[in-house]
C-alpha cells in the first residue's frame, strides 16, 4: 500500500499538532508545545471512496508554524500528496495567513489537493461562523470550501483529514 505524504501547514499556535493528535490518537492537551522542524506521524485510515471502504496510509508532516510561508515550508512540501492548511478561527489574520500558505502550496505542488481548516471553531460564538470569518472569499479564490474544526471537541477533525484522503484517491495520487 502506498504511503501518502500529507503536510499540515500554517501559522504557529493555530493547533496543527493538536489537530493531528486528535486525528491520530484521539487525544487533546491544553498545553502549548511548539513544533521544531517537522514531526512525522504514521497513520492508517479507512475512507469511503465511491461507496467503497478504502484503506489509506498517511505520513503526516506536522510542519513548524510561521506567520508566513518561508523557504523551510517550501522545502518540506516536496513530494506531498496533499496539504491541510490550518488557520486560527479566532485570529484576525487567519484569512491572510491561510491564503498565503495555500498560494505557496499551489506553487510548490501544482495539481495537488489541499484543504483549508479553521481551527478553534468552538470559540466562535456567531450564528454563521463562515460568514463572520469571511470564508466564502477563500472558497471563491481557491475553489476549496473551508472547514471549521475544533481539536478540543474533535468537531470536523476526522472529516478534514478524510476529505483530503478522498481527494488524494480522486486525483489518483
Amino acid at each position: 500500500m502506498k504511503t501518502h505524504k500529507i503536510c499540515v501547514l500554517g501559522d504557529f499556535g493555530v493547533g496543527k499538532t493538536s489537530l493531528i493528535r486528535r486525528y491520530v490518537f484521539n487525544a487533546f492537551a491544553q498545553d502549548y508545545h511548539a513544533t521544531l522542524g517537522v514531526n512525522l506521524y504514521k497513520y492508517e485510515d479507512e475512507i469511503l471512496f465511491e461507496e467503497e471502504p478504502t484503506r489509506l496510509r498517511f505520513m503526516i508532516w506536522d510542519v513548524e508554524g510561521a506567520a508566513e510561508p518561508g523557504p523551510h515550508a517550501e522545502r518540506y512540501v516536496v513530494g506531498a500528496s496533499a496539504a491541510l492548511i490550518v488557520g486560527d478561527a479566532t485570529r484576525a489574520t487567519a484569512l491572510q495567513t491561510v491564503s498565503a500558505y495555500a498560494e505557496m502550496f499551489e506553487e510548490q505542488a501544482p495539481g495537488r489537493p489541499f484543504a483549508l481548516a479553521f481551527n478553534k471553531a468552538d470559540l466562535i460564538a456567531a450564528p454563521d461562523p463562515h460568514a463572520k470569518l469571511g470564508l466564502q472569499e477563500l472558497d471563491a479564490r481557491f475553489g476549496v470550501e473551508p472547514l471549521l474544526t475544533s481539536a478540543l471537541t474533535g468537531a470536523g477533525v476526522r472529516e478534514a483529514f478524510r476529505k483530503l484522503g478522498e481527494q488524494v484517491l480522486a486525483y489518483g495520487l
Binding site: F25, L36, G37, K42
Partner: peptide, 17 residues
C-alpha cells in the same frame, strides 16, 4: 534535498531530531 530537524512521533515516543 534537505530537511532539518525531522523527528518521528508515535504515541509515547520521545522525539529524536
Amino acid at each position: 534535498l534537505s530537511f532539518e530537524n525531522i523527528s518521528i512521533h508515535s504515541d509515547g515516543y520521545a522525539p529524536q531530531y
